[in-house]
Design a protein around this nucleic acid. Structure first.
Lengths: 188, 188
DNA sequence: CCGATTATGGAACGATCATTCAAAAAAAGG
DNA sequence: CCTTTTTTTGAATGATCGTTCCATAATCGG
């Protein structure tokens, strides 16, 4: 290593997440990324390759951080249902910021292999963790015993997506809170 | 009128819906639209103005048709809950095709006034119709009397968005069916 | 302090972008 | 049949796209 980089690569990537989440991949030009990330164009290409690789790196970073936040919220309560409620509550509170994961699915669907490969392990882990917490809630008498935990996890994850689309579409916090509360009724 | 157009403007617009729904606004080039709509480039610009106006026309057309389909499904059952179930079931069955409405919200959020103006009346009408059907279900003893019909409508509409993101992300029909079934549990 | 190595900044690249010009073609009205 | 009006076709527009070249600047190991 000769000359060290002048910018914080991780902070720049975080800013790239914001740009991509707000405008999508196709809607984000190299110039917008340069401005948003506050680094030079050449630095961008030297550090991340090209726009697609930068997008994948941003998506990976976002997905891992977001997955961690989901898991933390899930574990935050003593009872399974408390964790589930905390997870949804956190989504409601952060629903103002656009979600890069949701937007990537919207923009590219299931077709793109690079994205599918990124998403698969994260989705699997989240689904498993949610299902486990639902099983806890069942043992604790907070969730109906007849429910399939995996199916209920799919349902809650779909609810999260619904909350995010709602927030992106302009729903206020009261509406989103109401949606989250109703969603929890399905488990009882 | 001198020379009549050689293409069916409405059919071409329907094909534009498909292109935009699959690739988004920014992801759809004029060339892709010309190919997908099967009309000449100049015909496109003469008939619709520019790409943004074409997008708005496509979104309007899609939103109205989709709204009508939702309302038809809602009215299809004798009891309120039958209509609600039919609406969700139709969404599950059509979840393989991307939804231009969801994608527009994802791509542009609530910020863009042209889109907001298009969406507002459609969203209001759908919300009202769903809420009315929930009120029916309450009278018929199929939905909990304590629910606020408007809040429950918001919840169901969020569920629809969740189903669509799920379908776009590759969930199979069994998963989506399970999600829709669980969603209905929240109303009881 | 010196050569090697890497990062930076600015200008440039061809390609593609959305859009339009210009000419030919086709129908309508007289 | 001829003029007018509109659609179509194909080529061209300037702008912006993602990406790279090149020269300069900065820091490393020695």
């Amino acid at each position: 290593m000769a000359r060290p980089r002048e910018f914080d690569a991780d902070a720049a990537l975080e800013r790239a997440v914001a740009v991509f989440a707000e405008h999508g991949f196709e809607g984000s030009s190299a110039q917008m990324l340069v401005d948003g990330m506050e680094i030079g164009r050449q630095s961008l290409y030297a550090a991340y390759g090209d726009k697609w690789q930068l997008y994948l790196a941003a998506l990976k970073r976002y997905g891992e951080a977001e997955g961690r936040a989901h898991l933390d919220a899930l574990r935050s309560g003593a009872r399974g249902m408390d964790g589930i409620r905390a997870m949804l509550e956190r989504v409601v509170q952060t629903a103002k910021r656009p979600c890069l994961g949701t937007n990537a699915v919207c923009e590219f669907g299931a077709a793109h292999p690079d994205i599918a490969k990124l998403r698969a392990p994260l989705a699997k882990r989240l689904r498993g963790a949610v299902a486990a917490r639902i099983a806890d809630a069942q043992k604790e008498g907070d969730a109906a015993a007849g429910l399939d935990p995996q199916a209920a996890a799919d349902y809650l994850i779909a609810t999260i997506a619904g909350l995010r689309i709602g927030g992106r579409g302009g729903a206020d916090r009261a509406q989103l809170t109401g949606i989250a509360q109703l969603a929890l009724r399905a488990l009882r």
